[in-house]
Write a protein that binds this DNA or RNA. Structure first.
Length: 184
DNA sequence: GCCTATCGTGATG
DNA sequence: CATCACGATAGGC
């Protein structure tokens, strides 16, 4: 997995007005919208109603214009969501976020499928053991759900915690991943 | 820049 | 269950 990182400042300079392509697809856990810039996938989120997904995309990238259509980046990302595929290397991500957020998101990538971590563990991993609350915030702003496994983070007391796309969906995904690992 | 509200938290009583 | 401190962000001014 290749990650193209960009802060808000950089993004404004480099990607102002650039067209972002988006398309919709079905996954095991619901309909998703996937979007990509010239550099890679920049957004992936669940959307039971297509319009709401599109609205969320637009609000995250207010300075861009949009056009419906699929491309290689999107296809590669989507193939990761299908069972049995492990070709994680060929996927390109284009992430816009603060340096803190980027650190958190990269830390999430080290959480293997089928296991979970906690907000405080992530905080320690990135060297700010006290910044638990902030970690929760950053995790919740993950623009590419599933690709960056933000759903594998739970509360340290064992409760599932929240999920941007619905707590029940989070449980559902975790359950499915747990079973996948058993099979292997 | 400062002030404030807002979190996908965690610890305490 | 109520409350508080925590760190980072976004938005209003």
């Amino acid at each position: 997995m290749i990650i193209e990182e960009m802060t808000a400042d950089n993004y404004a300079k480099v990607c102002k007005g650039v067209i972002i392509r988006y398309s919709f697809a079905e996954t095991l856990f619901g309909r998703v919208i996937v979007a990509s810039s010239l550099l890679g996938v920049c957004f992936l989120g669940f959307c039971d109603i297509q319009e709401s997904g599109l609205n969320e995309l637009k609000s995250r990238f207010p300075k861009n214009s949009f056009e419906e259509g699929a491309d290689e980046f999107q296809m590669a990302a989507l193939s990761l969501l299908q069972p049995g595929k492990q070709g994680r290397a060929e996927v390109r991500l284009h992430l816009k976020g603060t340096s803190f957020q980027l650190k958190v998101w990269k830390a999430l990538l080290s959480v293997p499928q089928g296991s979970v971590t906690t907000y405080s563990q992530i905080a320690q991993l990135i060297g700010s053991p006290k910044a638990v609350r902030a970690v929760g915030n950053a995790v919740g702003k993950n623009p590419v759900s599933l690709l960056i496994p933000c759903h594998r983070v739970i509360c340290s007391n064992g409760l599932p915690g929240g999920y941007h796309w619905g707590a029940d969906r989070k449980k559902c995904i975790l359950e499915w991943e747990r079973k996948q690992v058993e099979v292997c």
